[in-house]
């Protein structure tokens, strides 16, 4: 077990969106922008931007990491590119105003149906139903998550009927 694997998620988060050089077992060296660190395995996902908007993704397994050095603290442009890299297509097609509108429509629809709903998360983007179900942008039936499958299917059906209403 290396020092890297013993770090906490908050410590790993400090490396996200920064350019690093990773030294791994057998003297391998990898360089790139940190997209994320898997909190389960401590695997580091590095992204390198190539020409004609291609990208190369290298993942260094957490157990093989020996040393991580930060080369560049990064900027907002890189952060933006990395955040939306693997996001589903429908996430990108909505503007912030569109999302706000969709959220408010859905919120009022749920309230009309006597379902308690609150806003939470970063910039109140996530809708929370009765504290047991969350709806993330862009607020479709497939964006619901809950550990209670009965509530999940009811709310999904309700959102579906709101779309066809």
């Amino acid at each position: 077990m290396t020092d890297w694997c013993k770090k906490t998620p908050l410590e790993w988060k400090d490396y996200v969106n920064k350019e690093v050089k990773v030294t791994s077992d057998e003297k391998n060296e990898h360089q790139g922008w940190v997209l994320t660190v898997d909190p389960v395995t401590a695997n580091i996902v590095l992204v390198n931007f190539l020409e004609d908007s291609k990208m190369s993704v290298t993942v260094v397994m957490g157990h093989a990491v020996q040393k991580v050095d930060i080369l560049d603290e990064g900027n907002d442009e890189v952060k933006e590119r990395l955040t939306y890299l693997f996001m589903p297509e429908e996430m990108k097609t909505f503007s912030t105003e569109d999302l706000e509108k969709r959220k408010n429509n859905l919120k009022s629809w749920l309230e009309q149906n006597h379902i308690p709903v609150t806003e939470q998360g970063d910039a109140q983007r996530t809708l929370c139903v009765a504290g047991v179900l969350t709806i993330d942008p862009p607020y479709g039936p497939e964006n619901c998550s809950s550990s209670n499958e009965i509530i999940l299917s009811r709310v999904q059906a309700l959102i579906q009927s709101a779309l066809t209403h």
Binding site: E26, L50, M55, S56, T58, V59, V60, M61
Partner: peptide, 11 residues
Amino acid sequence: CPDIISYTFQL
């Protein structure tokens, strides 16, 4: 996975 050091793919 414990046998792997790293993996790379193009996007």
